[in-house]
Every structure is written in C-alpha cells, then in structure tokens.
Design a binder for these strands. Structure first.
Lengths: 205, 205
DNA sequence: AACGTAAGTTACCGGTCAGTAACGTGATAA
DNA sequence: TTATCACGTTACTGACCGGTAACTTACGTT
C-alpha cells in the first residue's frame, strides 16, 4: 500500500529571501500532497517535513489533521467556483454557449498531465460516512454543482431541464473518475464534447 | 479520519455447525470491509477480528495485506464480468438491446442501498500509482470495459462507435462516482437511461 | 536593551500499523 | 496410536500514526 514519504528538503534555510509564513507553506504543501497521493496516504509528519518545517509548527497552525483536510477541501471548492464563474462569464445571456464553454474548459483541465480527478470526489472515497464535518462538506459541494447545472439547463429552455443537468453531471464526474486510470487525453474523455452537444441537442430540438 | 474498528463477534464458537474455512471467512469479511470503508481504512487486525479469528490465522492464509487486496480486486472483477455476461446474454444478436439491458441492470445495481460505487475505481483513488501490481490490475479492468463497449457500439452500427462507447463509459463511471455522495436513486443517476438512449439515437439516426 | 512573537528542536505519549515466533489444542486420518 | 492438519493464543518487533510538552533560537519593534 505504501504511504507517501517525503525526501530531504533541498532548501534548509533560505534565510534572506523572504519565504512565505510557515502556515502557508504547510497548507500549500498539504494541498499538493493530498491531491497527488490521497488524504489517508499522507501523514502530518510528511507534510511538515516536505514544507521544510516540523510537526510542532504544524500543530501551532492547525488544530488537527482533520481541520487541515477540511480547509483543503474548502479551498478546492472555492477554486472550483472561481473557475466556474470565469468559464461562463464571457457568455452571459447565452446559456447554451455557457454550458459548452464550461465543458470545454473542464475538458482542458482534465486533460492536463497532473490532473488526478476531482479532489472533493476522491475525498468522498476516502473519508468515512460517519465523519459528518467532511462528508457534509463534500455533499454540499456536489449538490450545488447539480443545482447550478439544473439552473443552466432550465435557462437554456431544455425540455426536461433537470434530466439534462443530471446527465451533464454524470459526464462531468465520469470524466473525473476515468481520468484516474487513463492518462492525459487518451481516455474516454475524448468523447466528452460530442456527448455534451448530443445531449443538449436531444433536449432542445 | 477514523479507521474502521470491529465490534466483538456475536458467535465466538459455533462449534458443530460447520462454518466455512477460516481463509474463506477472512476473505469474505475483507471484501465487505474494503468495499464499505475503503482499503486503507481497514487493518488486518480488524479483518481477522471481524471474521472471528486472529491476525496469525490471517497470515497463515495470506502472504500480505497487498496480496489480499489484489485477490479482492480480482474477485470483484470476476463478479463484474459474470454480471456483464448475464445482462447481455438474453439479447444476443441485438446489440442495441444488449447495451440498454446492460445499463438498465447497472442502474438497478447502483440504486441499491448498499452500493458504494465501483470497487476497482475506488481502489484507484486509494492506491499509489507506483504500486504496479494493483494499479495495473485496475487499469486492465477499465481498459477491458472500454474495449467491450467499443465492440458493442460497433456491432450496433454506430456512426462513430468508439466515441459512443467512450460516452457510455463516462456515464457508467459517472453514475458510480456520484453514487458515493447521492443516496439511493435520488442522484443524477436518475437521468442515466435517458442519456444512454439519447446518445445511442444520436449515433444511429 | 528589552520584549513579544514566530519558528525550530528534541523527546515523548498512547495507539495502531503490518508482520512474525513459538506454542497449544482439538479433530481427523493412517 | 500416532502423526498431521487447521486453527487458536500470547507475546512480540519496528515503524508509523496523530498529538503534546518543554525548551531554544532568531528576528522585529519599541
């Protein structure tokens, strides 16, 4: 199974060059490690070490690992909605174009070499259902995505807007999920835009 | 984060009533626990205890936890293809009906209350990429599914068979993935059959 | 110079992880 | 009867888990 182990830091004391506060370094490192290797696979020791500090400084900045995980998930969530708004903003007033632009951007993102799927969705695999704080966080996130897709489908005048929104969500999460196994743009994600357009057409023609 | 802890066994010594061999009990217990709580979240101690035995008997039957995990994944894989063949067998010679039947059966499975998504796909989230044995196992599995879907789409006479097969795979994995967050039949999976038929129509009309 | 603050260091806690050694027991089969 | 097999039991290893205590070092203000 093998948990992630950090290798010695290259830059033990960069001294003068004002590097970011330890809390920020820890957080950024943790985000990267969690996404790359999974939440359970990364211990706080490895995070602190990789961030060029130690466990004590970790616990001066974060109450617990679960707190850090929650903050990681909230951060990814925020980034997601920023991305979402940026993707649809140029096509305000044209819902169909907005959906297409959204999925074009999503496709580009998913095809990037360092993409490891959906951070929140992956977390749902790892966290236990009885961890209320974290699983609620993920559920709210996915529910809001679903809701926004319903809204956009409705704005587009789709025959069965909720069904179209749900189908689009299946495609979105499907491309995240398959991405874990198929590298780059070689996977089933190739067919994403075709499927998106076919479904939209089917609901508007 | 909280790892799974087993509660005391109810049936410490069922004596006469010939219960299955310890290896089988361990394996069955492990499959259930891995699927329910995730692979990393379940330790060998918990497995052995839940199976009504102890760690020593575990290691008499399995060389390592990773070996057991591999066997778990192979078993789920076998079950999957059995299910697959059973689903399409009644409609041999009618590829379109086969695909529909496949997804109808898949939908029913995914709507079951104890479904926690795709065992192999979930494993892909948890295992590290450098675990060759396990990640190859998962990749081969997903590649074969993709290949079979391509074949069926081709047999159906689809205009772009590979694209249709890929789109169907996105829907399939999407319904697995969303299932982790949306309980029962309340999630985006509601739209599955509609999307499947719309895509097929789009590729054959 | 004095002080507060941010951060590094070492050592430790109890618990769990995967995995092993050595031994005991009860049933079966030769 | 004796040997073997399948299994249970106890105790252990070394590493790692999340988390804490107590102390030290360095810097920035005033």
């Amino acid at each position: 199974m093998s948990t992630y182990k950090s290798e010695a830091r290259d830059d033990p004391h960069a001294a003068t060059t004002a590097r970011p506060r330890v809390r920020d370094r820890i957080f950024e490192t943790a985000c990267e490690l969690f996404y790359r290797h999974g939440i359970r696979a990364v211990g706080v020791d490895a995070i602190a070490c990789e961030a060029g500090t130690n466990k004590m400084s970790f616990y001066r900045s974060f109450a617990s690992k679960d707190e850090l995980v929650a903050e990681y998930l909230r951060d990814r969530q925020r980034e997601f909605w920023t991305w979402w708004n940026d993707a649809i903003a140029p096509h305000a007033g044209n819902p169909r174009r907005q959906i297409e632009a959204l999925f074009e951007s999503h496709l580009a993102h998913v095809e990037e070499s360092d993409c490891r799927g959906c951070a929140l969705g992956n977390a749902a695999v790892e966290i236990s259902d009885d961890n209320d704080a974290l699983s609620t966080l993920v559920r709210d996130y996915k529910q809001r995505i679903r809701h926004e897709l319903h809204k956009m489908a409705r704005a587009m005048g789709a025959r069965d807007a909720d069904a179209l929104g749900d189908s689009l969500m299946l495609l979105m999460d499907g491309s995240y999920f398959t991405r874990l196994v198929f590298p780059g743009d070689s996977g089933p994600v190739r067919s994403l835009m075709g499927a998106v357009r076919a479904l939209i057409d089917g609901h508007t023609r």
